[in-house]
Every structure is written in C-alpha cells, then in structure tokens.
Simulated assay, not measured.
Amino acid sequence: MINPSASGWIDKFFAEQKFSEQNISTTTDIFYQKVRNTGFIYGHIIAFDTVNRIETKGWFKEEISKVALLNTLYDIFCLTNKEIRSEKFIEKAVSFYNQMHPQGFNILQKILPKNRLSLTLEKIIDERVQTNDSIISKNFSHLVTNALLFIDILAFRQYLIHDSIPEKYLKKIEETIVSIVTLGLNIKSNKSQYDDLLIKLFEASIRYSKFSKVSVQGFETLKLDYFTNELEKYYLIDIAGMALWSDGKIENDEIYFLHTLAEALSVSDSFVNQSISNTNDFITKHKKEIPYFNYSNPVKHFYDQTTQSVVTLISRNKNRLIKEIVQSKELMVLLAYSTRRDLDEKEKKKVKKQLLEICKTVPSLAIFLLPGGSLLLPILIKFIPTLLPTAFNENLDNE
C-alpha cells in the first residue's frame, strides 16, 4: 500500500499497479470519460482509474489529489505516446514541469540534483496540489484548485506532441476558462452579489499566468478556434457547467448558454446533454461529501470565513504591522483617507504595492504574497485603518 506523503511513493505506485497495454485508454473520448468518472474534472476525486484498487481511508485530500494527478498524467502520456514505460513517463513529466513552472513557483530550486527523477516528480506534484488552506477556505480552495489541475493534463499533452509547451498556451486556456465562467454567470436570471467573487476565486486559483481583466462581450471575442483538440473543448464545457451549477440548479438560459458554447467549439449537442446530466448526477450523488455544495450560498460562506481568518491574522500581528505602516507617512494617509472616501486607481495601486512590501517583512503575512493572496488584500486594506493611531486620525481631520 502506497503512502503519498512518504518518499518513494511514485516508484511504489508503478510497482504495485503493473500497467499493461490493455489498461490504457485507446481513444480521446474513452480517456475523458474515465477521468470524468473519477471526479478529477469536478475537483472532487472519488476513485482512481488503476489496475489495482487503492485504499484511501485515512488519507488527506492533498494525498488523494497527488495520486490522481500522477495517474492522469500517466494515462495521457500512454494515450499520446502509445507506450507504457513508467521511466520514460517520469522523465517527460519532470521536463514538462521544468518548462512550465512560472516565475516565483520555485519547485525545482528546492530539489537536489542527486535526486532520482521519481523523487523530483514527487516534490513537484506535492507543490502542485498545495492550496492556501490557512487563509482561503479549505473546502472551496481545494475544489477549485483540483478542478483546474486538468489544465496540467492538457498542457502535458501539448508538450508530448511538440516537445515543448506552445507559447502562451497556459495563459490562453486559463484566461478562456475565467472568461467563460464570467459570461456564464452574467446570463444567470437570479444574479448574486457573490457571483463576482466566484469569478475572482477562479482568477486567484490559476497558476501559470497573471490574469489581466478583459472585456468579454461574447464567444466570438474569445477566439475559441484556438482549441482544436476534443479534450480541451470537453473540459471547457464541463468547467462552465460546474460553475453554473454553483447555485444548485441549471436554468434554461444556462442550458442554452452551454449549447451555444458547444456550437462555438464545434462540439455536438449530445455531448452537452451528457455533460449536464453527468455534472448533475455527480454533484447530487456526492454533494454531502463536498462541503462547498452544502451551503445555501457557498461563496458567501467562503467570504465570511475568509474575512474572519484575515482579521484574526492581522490582530495577531497588530504591533508589528503598525510599526511597519507608521514608517510610511504616504501609506498612513491613504489608508486613513480610504475610511472617508473611495481611493482612485492610482492611490489603490500605491496602497497595494506598499502593503505587499510590508507583508514581505512580516513572516506571518507572507500568505498575501502567495498565489491567490491578492484576493485577500481588499479585506486587509479594509481592516487596517482601525489599527491606525487615534492621534493620527485626529490630525487628519484638521488638514
């Protein structure tokens, strides 16, 4: 039995499974359906598509995610390269992640050159499935991060075909996902004030690009013809359906949206019907196991929990934070002004930049520098003025 938290688990995984050519997917459709059945597409893994059953009782979610990611990467390797050698797969996977990891995602810097490639891949995968659990609601963060892991699978396929990741491929697919989710939520008849936050959560969960806001008018502006493989198209439809399901049901307008998306991607209506049915069946069946879907408004729950976590973190570091802030008169003035009027864009950028610099000097606040941390800054900015010295606020009144 493997232990995904113990060194050497990848070698043991392949030794126990003994994959053969009879076990690998032979077509794109078979591969995708198998992956979808495991829950990997939905971010909640219920099983592994392996030769021998793997018992996960007592495992942490991250451990399940690690095995699922490894197994799915291996499956797409077998499908694309038409071979099953685990040694070759590990070599390709390490080279792939070495090329794709963005600046600041310093996985390989932590790895000693003398490590076996399988141990190197273990450390990469361990880093890849991590979420900001100490701040971002664990239940939601893990779900979204897992659902977006399939981007790795799509990019790995591109790498195997071209021996490199096409330029801007990762940025393109991430921005397309966020744009499609944005378009989908905009057509909802019962819009919620938390829909924008859901979009921001997707933005905060992307790993390989710094998402820049674009004005999305319709599918024609997304240039969906960039995606030519069925796996890419299927995934975009499924991830859109999952986002629309966030309020517990899919309305007629949302069904029409998914069919319109499919038409733009040249995907059949039958796949959309299957996607809607599979998504509904999966979430309905496993809803009790997915805490995110157990709240009447899961995004509101996330926001409330996150706010409380940030407030607690700031309170614990109050003295150090005040000491750093008072050294910057400009920052103090802007923070004080923010309690009386809305800051303009230039002022907001100054506040954000200076606060991030302060976070670098306070170890406990380093969470704001991690992927997704920018989502928490508005909460930080809102709460900090209450820490400002009273005398300073009184002086501001006299200016």
Rank of each mutant, 00 (worst) to 15 (best):
S25P: 11
S25C: 11
T26I: 15
T26M: 13
T27N: 13
T27E: 13
T28S: 14
D29F: 14
I30T: 13
F31C: 07
K34G: 07
V35R: 09
N37S: 11
N37A: 09
T38A: 04
F40G: 02
F40H: 04
I41S: 01
I41G: 01
G43N: 00
H44T: 03
I45D: 02
A47W: 07
A47Q: 08
T50Y: 02
R53Q: 09
I54A: 05
T56H: 08
E63H: 09
S65R: 10
L70F: 03
N71W: 00
T72G: 02
T72N: 00
Y74R: 04
D75N: 02
D75L: 01
F77K: 00
L79A: 06
T80Q: 04
N81G: 04
N81Q: 10
N81L: 01
E83T: 05
E83M: 06
I84E: 04
I84N: 03
I84K: 01
S86Q: 08
E87W: 04
E87L: 03
F89I: 02
I90A: 06
E91P: 03
V94I: 09
F96H: 05
Y97E: 09
Y97K: 09
Y97N: 07
N98S: 11
M100L: 15
M100E: 14
H101G: 02
P102Q: 06
F105G: 04
L108I: 11
K110D: 03
K110P: 00
I111H: 02
P113V: 07
P113Q: 05
R116N: 11
L117N: 14
L117F: 06
L119C: 10
L119R: 14
T120M: 11
T120F: 08
L121N: 05
L121F: 05
L121S: 03
E122R: 09
E122G: 04
K123D: 08
I124K: 14
I124A: 13
E127S: 09
R128A: 12
V129R: 02
V129M: 07
Q130Y: 08
T131C: 06
N132F: 13
N132I: 15
D133R: 10
D133I: 11
N139A: 12
N139M: 12
F140T: 06
F140R: 05
F140G: 05
H142W: 09
L143W: 07
V144P: 01
A147I: 04
L149M: 12
F150D: 02
I151T: 08
I151N: 03
I151Q: 05
D152F: 00
I153H: 00
I153V: 09
L154A: 05
L154T: 04
F156P: 03
R157N: 10
Q158G: 12
Q158L: 08
Q158W: 10
Y159H: 08
L160Q: 02
D163W: 15
D163T: 14
I165K: 11
E167F: 15
E167M: 15
Y169R: 14
Y169K: 13
Y169F: 15
K171T: 15
